[in-house]
Structures are given as C-alpha cells and as structure tokens.
Amino acid sequence: MAIALTEAISRLEGRFGARTVVTATAADDRARTRRFATGTSFDRLSGGIEPGSAIALAGEGTCGKGTIALRAVAGAQQDGGMALWVDPSCSFDPLAAQRAGVDLARVLVVRARTNEAVLVAAGAGLRSEGFRLVVVDLGPAFAACASIDDLAPVLPQARGATAALLVVTDAPARRLALPTFRFERVAWEQRHGRTSGWAFAVRKVGDARDERAVLHASSLGRRIVDIGTRAALREAV
C-alpha cells in the first residue's frame, strides 16, 4: 500500500512538478500565502500575483508591460523579498526600475544569452526559496533568443514554488496554457510636436467580462497614471 502510494505521488510530482501533492494543512497554508500587488488597476484584473503561479504579460514594444513588471517587482519586495530578473535582451533599465519603486539592492539581473541559459536561470530562481518573483523578460521578438513556448520546462517548477513567474513577451504563447494579460497601446501623447507618453490598456485573455485596465505612462513626469478599469470609469460617469 505504502509503495503504491509512493509510486503514485512520485509519478504525479514527476509530471506536474514538486509539491503538487501536499497535505491538507500545507494546502491551507498555501491558500493563505500573501499575494503581492502592483498598486495599479492591473491588480483588479489579476487579483494580485500569487507565489507559485505563472503569468504572462504580452504585447508589442513600448506598451507598458515592462512598467507593470517593474511595479510587480516593487510589490514583491515590499515585505523584504528578493527578485530575479532574467534579461536575455539586456533591456533592464535600472533608472526606470528605481522610479517604479524597485529596491535595486534586492534585484539580481541575469544576462542569459541563450535559450538554455534562460531555462537554467529561471529554473534556478524558482527552485530556490530565495526569491518572491522571477521575471523572464524575453525582449523584442526580433532580438529574442527564446520564445515563451520554450519556457515549457520551467512551468512545472513554478507550481508550488515560493516565487511567482512573470513572463514579459511580445507574442503570447501558442502551445502553453498560461494565464496571459494582453497589453495594447491606446494612444500616443504628444507635446510640442514630440512624443511625451502613451496610454495603454490591459485585458486578461479569455476573460468573459472583457474588463480592461487603462493606464497612462508619461516621460515628462517619469511616472505612470492609473486611469482605472472600464467598470470603475463607467461607475464614475
């Protein structure tokens, strides 16, 4: 009986990742695990980011994915946690991160230059208990060394990990079933004939309510203005 149980559990863990099978007490503990937030309307769509989960932020370049990812890092650090930023495209901007409230002393940036290195870095971050958030910023599609579908081997490691996995990508996954938030630029803002910011909308792919959060990023004040969700705006009007 015990051997059969052992085999069944090891088969489940082998297929679905470590800590798939847990005792009821451990499951209850996990349910009570604190989620962390970005402090924007994005949280209304996502319900906060839960350790042990994986989500993707998808959208074309300069549409706010990186800004929200940096806000998530700041949220993860609020209780003293560390974050790992896997950066194959070398696009991590420390100044933008600092403006988003990120404590740079508690971020490790990994310049992974190959698909294999991305998998090694993300896997290591998720398997350890050193981080609350692992961000994989795949960078612009034309320069990316890995696609979101290549991250399939690390997804089982995200399940049950103490960190959440956040994938920032130009194109959404084709083969992976990963909760995805689609970012779209709504309008450019121009002043004196120059681009000074942009407004963008976020929606959860496959969400029946078709709710959107609208935000505005400005390069002048170097800040992000949270306009709100569509439902909240309707209520206000």
Partner: peptide
C-alpha cells in the same frame, strides 16, 4: 520574514555564475 532568504538568493547567484560565467549575474546601482 523574507530577509532570511537573501542568503539563498546569493547561493543561486553563485550557482548561476558558475554555470553562465562572469558578467552574467549582476546587480545594478544608480
């Protein structure tokens, strides 16, 4: 609660450096 984890994060950094080589695991400073 999470400060104790920093040591483990550094252990990961050490491991990644050994796998990916020097210049791969960095900390930025403004």
């Amino acid at each position: 609660a999470d400060a104790a984890r920093e040591e483990e994060a550094i252990a990961v950094a050490r491991y990644l450096r050994s796998r990916l080589g020097p210049g791969a695991v960095l900390r930025p400073r403004v």
